[in-house]
Design a protein around this nucleic acid. Structure first.
Lengths: 336, 336
DNA sequence: CTGAAAGCGCTAACAT
DNA sequence: ATGTTAGCGCTTTCAG
């Protein structure tokens, strides 16, 4: 159906190799007759609507120029700021003539067949993956970059500077006069490095001031119960992400409590809508798009480095965070 | 490097076709010796860590089992409820042993080469695409399903029942006593069918009551100016999406105006966070995940129908909407 | 600079 | 049921 280099070759009266070379621009055009022939070949290709067959090329070159995005199958892959990460990833990959495949892990449909079967040249992972997946990738020596996860020191990864982020958040609350401050992670968030590191930064700021860091990893109703009970409840809460902030902020409103008057709230991620919350959310932001861009660059590099037989050095990149102070934080209530 | 069927064949002392057949389970196992041999072949394949080479298979079968998701390169691809659509799409495709490729159109990186070069067997489109893209797909006779866009009657598509959605939203406001009601679409939203149809439903409800439908397609500050001026300003606003609701709700709060007391606000899409807005947003919801699932089923069907040489009949599917009444709507203020 | 030819790994039609 | 063989369309040596 579609024209091949052979069709062109026949019509031009040359060999298929010549066509292939010309079409790839792999010719100098020194001699005059050559140049003319090249032009004619291009002309014929154009007339025939020739388009290289990518399946054949992938087979021949033994690579697809595809990169798989592996993620565990929870509901939050495209949520939060991951959309921006994804955007940066896809765009940068496209710039380098590669493309992204979405590969949920553990959602039926065998990821192994797809990823290890050679339909992708490398992969990028979101979130901590099951050990089986990691070892599968490692055994296959498949180039891989982990995003937001440094649980595997062997693999290059890009993470957010969580320690500094939560440190500055805690510092901000302390400076406002808060003494009882907590860090809240929703129970649906699976344990991984970001939780630990956000706790570390938080803990550091607290202990520097001789304060005791409180930590919750529970469903929202438990957290809400703590925040709405009388007595020594926290007056400031740092949330693992903007999701928790949304949940807690809403609950406070339902209970007739005011933010920031009754509770200072800090989110994480600076997703778009938080700017428009009531009140606008103070949050720890970072350039999510850049995570994607860097991830793409990194995987592309190891994909090309592979051709050069040089094993890519394990690399770790941190993306800076910045506290964005808006309206959800203020001095603690008097009685505190 | 990786084991092939030839390696297995050699070791088992059989032909490669036999290996291929056994590995595909394409054998009855009638005779005892056959069954034994099959078992041995499987054993050897296992030992060798055999895994079918998907590139070779794609080349041979002339299909990749890949589906491209085409979208114009704006910032909202993964925003709103599109994340859910995407989720449904990916999962359903994976169930049918297919996978999704992300293909931004017009962001550098040639979509044509990727899509028309045979790296995907079909495609699904988000949002209205440039005519050049549509005709390219049509000329290549590439199976395609359009999501949220019925601008091309030739192509199968899945849309939301926008007319009924906005109709019920308007009806709700009218029942509450509102007379001056507007429909607001942000200027960043490009003209497409949903806008028209949401206007139609809105207009219908209004004219049924002898009311005049107001329509704005502008940046938020213009809309805000209209809402905060004195006199005959709208008391009820139906928004094209939850984005507009977020923007407007926030602006009202800044101006010291109350929702729903001073303005009743209705969103569209029912994205997760709107339930937690202050107050919770009344919105028109629909099963976004289902759009993805249906889209996947539809494209899979036309991919397999193609093998049967039966041109897929153009199909149109509508996903139902439902008004979700929460706290952002109430009777209009007295003076109105 | 060009042509001939091998090879990439699998599927499928055909013959046995 | 099994083996043989011919593709699938491109890249890449290797001669000329």
């Amino acid at each position: 159906m579609a024209a091949t280099i052979y069709d062109i070759a026949r019509e031009a009266g040359v060999s298929s190799s010549t066509v292939a070379r010309v079409l790839r621009g792999d010719t100098k055009g020194d001699r005059k007759d050559s140049a003319e022939r090249a032009a004619r070949i291009r002309q014929i290709a154009d007339n025939l609507g020739y388009r290289p067959n990518l399946r054949a090329r992938a087979f021949s070159e033994q690579r697809t120029k595809g990169v798989g995005l592996l993620y565990t199958d929870d509901a939050w892959v495209f949520e939060g700021v991951n959309d921006k990460v994804l955007q940066g990833l896809v765009r940068e990959l496209r710039k380098h003539d590669h493309h992204l495949l979405l590969v949920p892990v553990g959602a039926g449909g065998d990821w192994e067949e797809l990823v290890l079967g050679g339909h992708v040249d490398g992969c990028v992972t979101f979130q901590p993956l099951p050990e089986a997946v990691r070892s599968g990738i490692r055994d296959a020596a498949l180039p891989c970059v982990m995003l937001g996860d440094n649980s595997d020191p062997e693999m290059p990864h890009i993470v957010v500077d969580d320690v500094t982020g939560s440190y500055s958040a805690a510092r901000h609350l302390i400076a406002l006069g808060h003494r009882r401050i907590g860090l809240y992670v929703h129970s649906t968030v699976k344990p991984h490095c970001s939780i630990q590191e956000r706790f570390q930064g938080f803990e550091l700021a607290m202990t520097e001031e001789g304060l005791v860091p409180d930590f919750w990893h529970c469903p929202e109703d438990e957290m809400i119960a703590v925040l709405t009970r009388g007595g020594a409840r926290p007056t400031g809460l740092i949330c693992y992400s903007d999701l928790e902030s949304t949940l807690i902020g809403h609950a406070m409103w339902q209970f007739g409590l005011k933010i920031p008057n009754d509770l200072s709230l800090i989110g994480f991620n600076d997703k778009f809508a938080t700017k428009y919350m009531t009140p606008p959310l103070t949050t720890v932001g970072f350039d999510a798009n850049r995570i994607g861009t860097l991830g793409a660059e990194m995987i592309i590099r190891s994909l090309t480095a592979e051709n050069a037989k040089e094993p890519p050095a394990p690399t770790s990149v941190q993306v800076k965070t910045q506290l964005i102070v808006r309206g959800s934080t203020a001095a603690p209530p008097r009685e505190a």
